[in-house]
């Protein structure tokens, strides 16, 4: 069963790296959102550094949502998803493997691109570190919610549009605590609490959503 799990994980990574492009495009998109903001609100360094946590998270939010559609669609359309249901690995396990692969392919490039944003949005080094930790802890939850959106819309022909709309409101807690884990003021420093809550929500999401997504996928065929 473990070999099936790793086989799916590795195959997804291999396919993404071989077809190239997509994950790089997402990282590029992430950076571009961050770069566009100063044009919208002006190059005031102080203002930018105050808004930076929010900007970083919104950019991450949008990039993850943008990549959602790839998660199950190809496997559904070429029949692979149906065959994976005939293997010994429970479908929730299949979803978890794909979730992890998707996180590695979308969130890791974002994390790698964060220093670039930090410099341009004039974040100080501690804030930058908090941003990396916050993204590291929060993005698994974001991707996990995304799997539900992708699973629910997998049989809809133009589901790519509707999945982000479904998932966005559900992901608001992640956004709140994700930004909260970076921001320290004004008022008492709540970033530690926020990080813990972020971790809790992220963990719950990763633990629960594979089952929900698996149920949605089996229902889609029936």
């Amino acid at each position: 069963m473990m070999s099936a799990f790793t086989a799916i994980l590795l195959r997804d990574l291999k396919l993404a790296l071989r077809t190239g492009g997509d994950w790089l495009t997402l990282a590029l998109f992430f950076v571009m959102v961050g770069i566009v903001v100063p044009f919208a609100i002006g190059p005031d360094r102080e203002l930018l550094s105050r808004l930076a946590p929010g900007i970083v998270w919104i950019a991450a939010f949008l990039s993850v949502l943008l990549g959602l559609d790839r998660l199950f669609r190809a496997d559904h359309e070429d029949g692979t998803l149906l065959l994976l249901r005939l293997s010994d690995l429970p479908l929730a396990g299949v979803v978890l493997a794909k979730l992890i692969a998707h996180w590695l392919l979308t969130a890791l490039p974002l994390l790698a691109a964060t220093p670039l944003l930090a410099v341009m949005l004039s974040m100080d080094p501690p804030a930058f570190l908090r941003a990396v930790v916050s993204l590291l802890v929060g993005t698994p939850g974001l991707v996990a919610l995304g799997t539900v959106g992708a699973a629910v819309t997998v049989t809809i022909r133009r589901g790519g549009l509707i999945a982000p709309v479904l998932i966005l409101p559900l992901a608001i807690p992640l956004l709140i605590f994700g930004v909260g884990a970076i921001t320290t003021g004004p008022g008492p420093d709540q970033s530690g609490t926020a990080l813990l809550l972020l971790a809790a929500i992220s963990l719950i999401a990763v633990a629960v959503t594979p089952f929900a997504a698996a149920l949605a996928i089996t229902s889609a065929e029936d």
């Binding site: 070999s3 099936a4 790793t6 086989a7 799916i8 195959r11 291999k14 396919l15 071989r18 077809t19 359309e77 070429d78 029949g79 692979t80 149906l82 065959l83 994976l84 005939l86 293997s87 010994d88 690995l89």
Partner: peptide, 23 residues
């Protein structure tokens, strides 16, 4: 009627994937 074949993997890789998934 859908073949569940990934065009970007070689034939051997396609088969090896199913061999490890199905045991």
């Amino acid at each position: 009627h859908r073949n569940a074949v990934k065009p970007h993997l070689t034939l051997a890789e396609n088969l090896a994937f199913w061999a490890s998934v199905n045991g």
